[in-house]
Design a protein around this nucleic acid. Structure first.
Lengths: 134, 134
DNA sequence: TCTAACCTTCTTTTTACAGGAAGGTTAGGC
DNA sequence: GCCTAACCTTCCTGTAAAAAGAAGGTTAGA
């Protein structure tokens, strides 16, 4: 059984985060010491690591909760997991498209900005008017 | 002079957002009616639109505040604006890279998941072990 | 005059923690 | 056996950028 800082280190999370997950009932410690310290079992560490990776994959806490219940269920239907994952991929694709568009616009604007002290900066002009710089 | 809902509509923002911007002192209405209604001048609408576009360009409120002060200053040095913009582009590039990586990993995992009721789902397996599926 | 559609301020909620205060516990060194 | 540093606890506040809602005042049109 591991104390919270060991559990956090082994799961590559912060102590604050692990405590938070316990508070919201996402991963509760297997037990408590006589002094009230949270004690984590090996399987808890695995769950924390699981959550950590899913979070890094930008799954929300609620999605992590769903995934965790599937993970804990030996009879888990992989169709559900796949569905959530495909949904997440679609979401990432949307975000990629938006970001790419934004990047293009900004770099176009920056390319037309002299970068000196003249007051006619197309970045400002564009933001003010909503027009695209030619 | 426009009431808040007209101002919001013309700037393509919500009433809540416009009120919020007034509260934090980002764009204060030119005046108030006898009844206390916020009244926005044409120039306020321009500023709100400016902020709206900058926000959609993922500038933070604080960056918007900086940009706005540059926008309001006729003697604005465009070098500063260009610097902020280039910084923002670099940030977007980092985010694009991360998202692309994430997308590849997830789509790889989903591609190896049968999506039926068999319990051996590689997505779950990967999240549980932290290993990459071959 | 009535009513729908406005408007006001104030408070709470959201997400996923981080930071800090006040105080108890433990491990190692002397 | 004591000291101190490094743990641990709970509780409270703060973050970004609004959204949502409550309670109540205003206005425009029929």
């Amino acid at each position: 059984m591991y104390k919270i800082s060991d559990a956090a280190r082994r799961a590559a999370l912060t102590v604050k985060t692990v405590r938070y997950y316990a508070d919201i009932g996402l991963v509760k410690p297997a037990g408590r010491s006589a002094a009230g310290y949270r004690l984590y079992a090996e399987s808890d560490i695995a769950k924390l690591g699981f959550i950590g990776r899913a979070r890094r994959y930008s799954f929300s806490i609620e999605q992590c909760r769903d995934l965790l219940s599937l993970y804990e269920d030996d009879q888990r239907p992989s169709a559900e997991v796949k569905r959530i994952t495909l949904e997440k991929i679609a979401e990432i694709d949307r975000k990629l498209g938006e970001l790419q568009e934004l990047r293009d616009e900004l770099s176009h604007l920056a390319g037309n900005c002299h970068g000196d002290s003249r007051p006619d900066c197309p970045i400002i002009g564009n933001l003010a008017s909503g027009l695209t710089v030619q």
